Every structure is written in C-alpha cells, then in structure tokens.
Amino acid sequence: MFDRFRRTRINTTLRKLVRETNVTTDDLIYPLFVRSGEGIKTEVASMPGVYQMSIDEVLKECAHIQKLGLNSIILFGIPDVKDSIGSDSLCEHGIIASAVREVKKAYPDMFVVTDLCFCEYTDHGHCGIIDEENQTVNNDATLEISAQQAIIHAKAGADMIAPSGMMDGIIQTLRDALDEAGYENLPIMSYSTKFASGYYGPFRDVAESTPSFGDRASYQMDPANRREAVAESVSDEMQGADILMVKPVLAYLDVVREIKDNTSKPLCVYNVSGEYAMLKMAGSQGLIDYDRVLMETMLSFKRAGADIIITYHAKEVAELLKK
C-alpha cells in the first residue's frame, strides 16, 4: 500500500489548510539608506528600486510602506564627511540619530532598527578603528566606540540595535553599556553569523562603504565554515543577544537550519543586495516568473528556520500578499 499525498493537494482550500510555512508582512524588515539634504531620492544603478534618500523622503517612504502593512525598518546612514573613526556615527546630530528622531516623531508606531557599524562612516571603509601595524580592525578599540554609538542610537529613540561589524565581544559590550545607561529593555539583534561574502557588492554602492584597502575576511566569517558559524551565534546568545542573524541567506540555508536547531533565540536572515540584484536582473530579462520565484525564495527562508527576514524585496512581497 502506498500513501496518496495528492489527496491533500487536489483542492485549493485544503492545500492552504495543510500548508506548513507562510510569509506575512509581520516577518519583514525593510532597509532604508538615509543621507543629509532635502528632496534627495537617488536610485542605485546596481539595485533597481533601492534609493539613497534624505530624511524627508524617508518619511514619505514610511507612510507608503505602512499602507502596505509593513511596520519595521532598518536604517543605514551615509554621512557627508567620513574620517578614521566614523565620527558622524558618534554624534547626537549625526545622520542616523537625526533620522531616528524624525521617523519616531512622525510615525511613533514604526519599529526602527539601527545598523550599528562604522564601515559607512569611515574614510577607509572598514568596520572600526584600524590597527595600523596589522592593517586590520582593532577589535577592542572598536568595542569602546561601538558602545558610544549604541547610546547615541538609544537616546535618539531606536527600538532595536543591530551591530553588524562582527567584533568579538560586541554583544556583551553593548549589553553592559545599554544596561548601565538605563536602556536595559532595548533589544539587540546581532549579526551573529555574518560571512565575508561576495554577495554584498551592490550594498557597497548604495552605502558607499567599499574598503579602501584589503577586505573584511579578518573579521567576517569564512564561507566554508559551518561549525564555526553555529558557534558564533551560540556565543552571541550567551552574551545576551535577543535575536540572532545569518547574513547572507540564499547560499547559507543549511547554516540557518543548524543555528535554529542549536539556539533558543529568534532567528533573522538578511536577504542581501547581491541576492536581490540577481533576482531583479533575471526578472527584467524574462528568464523567470519573477513574482513566483520571489515568493518561493521568501518561503525557503522561513522553511529553513527564519523568523524574521530583512529584505529589499519587502514592498514587493507586501504587494503580492495583498493580492
């Protein structure tokens, strides 16, 4: 005797009743890139539909996405002036702090996540203070200014902080600093397993954060290492991370599943710029049924174990869900 799996597939309603995995707008965080000025909305050539925006345009975008049912954003800042330590990110009047205040004033219910790093703010494009002797990021010196940046974000009104620099000990450092400053209820979403990936190329165009020398392989993860990937996230959980993350996601779904099976924390995945650009290019050339492949991709993230998806596709997914 064999199983007749088709019995639960023939009827459309029954297929929905037994569906194991679903994507909703509540799963999505939409990235926004903000810079100073007014009336600025500049599309990024390598990422169609993604823009650098001034704060006034970000506010318009927030109004639009709320109508689509999206209520979570992650902000990345592009300062006018960059220096060796990313001073703009350490200033209460810097681009991110200013953007957070304006968004929270206009849309108090918008959940605002801030990316906490230095690559967008430094003239060298790396994620912290440079150790000149070894030509890499000085981990412990970067921890000190990361704590300063976290307090700036908290004071501005951020709802969650997401450190992305892959510095050892960053979660413990930020948790201690935030608790001491009275922000013990502010959650931290750690970029706990972030690979030194080739999928980030277009992001560096929009964030203007390409390293001026070398690469980030000395502090981001080797794409070949599965066990270390799990250990990174487990370590951040033990340090106090409230949410963990895998970035990129498409080539690392095995890692997503294994981390999900080895931690008790909610898990976010970052559907990164290169993944976005490839799908957009294939769709524009008529090589795929774009809408269908987009939703299939989102389902694969959820099926692998993701609770949250950061994606540049968020508006498109929301529009498809409304249909």
Results as ranks from 00 to 15, higher is better:
Glu275His: 08
Lys67Met: 11
Thr114Met: 01
Val18Leu: 11
Leu90Ala: 04
Ala97Tyr: 06
Gly286Met: 05
Ala229Ser: 15
Gly128Ser: 05
Ala217Glu: 01
Met1Val: 14
Met166Phe: 14
Ala158Lys: 13
Asp179Gln: 14
Ile188Ala: 04
Leu253Ser: 03
Cys62Lys: 10
Ile288Glu: 03
Pro266Ser: 09
Asp291Phe: 01
Thr142Lys: 04
Gly157Glu: 06
Gly39Trp: 03
Asp222Gly: 06
Ala318Met: 05
Ile29Asn: 01
Met160Pro: 10
Arg204Thr: 06
Gly286His: 13
Leu90Val: 08
Asp131Tyr: 02
Val100Thr: 08
Met245Ser: 08
Ala181Asp: 08
Tyr107Gly: 00
Arg101Leu: 03
Met110Tyr: 03
Cys91Glu: 09
Arg292Met: 14
Arg226Ala: 02
Ser72Pro: 01
Ile171Lys: 08
Glu237Tyr: 02
Val246Ser: 06
Leu90Phe: 12
Gln66Thr: 11
Glu133Gln: 09
Gly274Val: 10
Cys117Asn: 07
His64Asn: 15
Asp123Arg: 04
Val23Met: 03
Pro266Tyr: 13
Tyr290Gly: 10
Leu320Trp: 04
Leu299Phe: 01
Tyr290Glu: 09
Ser218Thr: 12
Leu143Tyr: 05
Gly305Pro: 04
Gly198Asn: 11
Asn185Gln: 12
Met295Asp: 06
Glu228Asn: 02
Arg292Asp: 07
Tyr183Asn: 07
Asp205Thr: 04
Asp179Val: 12
Phe203Val: 00
Ala304Val: 05
Glu232Ala: 06
Asp26Cys: 02
Ser273Ala: 10
Gly125Leu: 05
Thr21Val: 15
Glu184Ser: 13
Gly169Lys: 12
Met298Asp: 06
Val18Tyr: 15
Tyr191Thr: 09
Gln172Thr: 15
Ile188Gly: 03
Lys82Gln: 06
Asp109Leu: 07
Pro266Gln: 04
Ala196Leu: 05
Ser300Val: 01
Gly169Leu: 13
Phe111Gln: 07
Tyr191Gly: 00
Leu116Thr: 10
Ile243Asp: 04
Val269Phe: 14
Cys62Asn: 06
Ala277Asp: 01
Ile161Tyr: 11
Arg226Glu: 10
Tyr199Trp: 12
